[in-house]
Design a protein around this nucleic acid. Structure first.
Lengths: 165, 165
DNA sequence: AGCTATAGTGTGATGTTATAACATATACAA
DNA sequence: TTGTATATGTTATAACATCACACTATAGCT
């Protein structure tokens, strides 16, 4: 079992996060028999350049930094694919996207419920996986006779590192 | 104490909801010494026409239904005012707005934390006020050394009435 | 009443995010 | 190789939101 990840440290070796995520993505796509094409991989790499959520048009600009002519549609299609396959999440409060931190090559599941902490100072977003929170949420909803399809939980504030400054 | 409101019934007498909300809004604005101007009241009325969240440009269209020339900016300004004063909420997952169901004329507070249930079938959104959920959330966040500014909780699914069909 | 500071609104342009619709290309299996 | 499903290219447009600056109304003061 992965223990609950702590908030990403400002000085961690991010190349490892990124490389690991890309590797797992390959594995997952192979297992699911879906194609991680060039454009999809490029978008995924850009998303994984940091733990700060990135907008679709930022991704687009990075793709086109060399003078390319990729259109918005291509980016949105790639993001849709990546979300379907649980490789990225969309943050509704920011209209931005972030790599999924809970990649699990074994599990056949695609997108999973996620909760996020978003630092207003450094912009970093961390995926939260709190069983008690999920339980409380599930229960509160069930009590009202409501059936869950999907959930959005996005908490904005100060991360431990920025708070310490 | 208000007990937890149930999901709005499809056949309830909505004119009462609406009228009550408008009355409370008057009271709250008077208490806070802020001005519920014509345009702000008009927007609030439109928002309260139902329990289905409404987009800014829908509001605009309704304002201009008689041939008016109100601009988007005016609507966004009114919505900003109404949100600051806790009279409406914004649903990030829908880019839409809904009247606040927890108006409390006594409390001097403005916007408060809210959680929403959104029915994918009828579109109705209900404000949830679950103490256990809030506790679980606060605790999960605190454990990670994160300080909350604001939170978004939006749960999409089927409401009891639509599920029964 | 007249003055003034502040709050509110009008207006036009523009920025940002996302999708529709249809054409073309590529991968893979039969 | 030929058919089919998947993926991408391309153009236009929809949907959501804000900036900047001018003008107006209101409340509080003298």
């Amino acid at each position: 079992m992965a223990k609950s990840a702590s908030f990403p440290k400002p000085d961690h070796d991010h190349s490892r996060c990124s490389a690991s995520a890309l590797r797992k993505a390959e594995t997952i796509c192979a297992a699911r028999k879906v194609r991680l094409t060039d454009i999809r991989r490029d978008v995924l790499e850009i998303v994984w350049k940091s733990h700060v959520p990135v907008g679709a048009y930022d991704i687009l600009a990075q793709l086109n930094a060399d003078g390319g002519r990729t259109a918005p549609m291509a980016v949105y299609r790639a993001l849709e694919f990546l979300m379907e396959n649980g490789l990225v999440h969309r943050l509704a409060s920011l209209n931005a996207f972030i790599g999924c931190a809970h990649l699990n090559a074994e599990s056949g599941e695609g997108h999973h419920a996620a909760q996020f902490l978003i630092c207003r100072a450094c912009g970093t977003a961390a995926e939260l996986e709190s069983a008690p929170l999920t339980r409380a949420l599930t229960q509160a909803v069930a009590e009202r006779g409501f059936t869950i399809d999907s959930q959005i939980v996005e908490i904005s504030g100060l991360c431990p590192h920025c708070a310490a400054l």
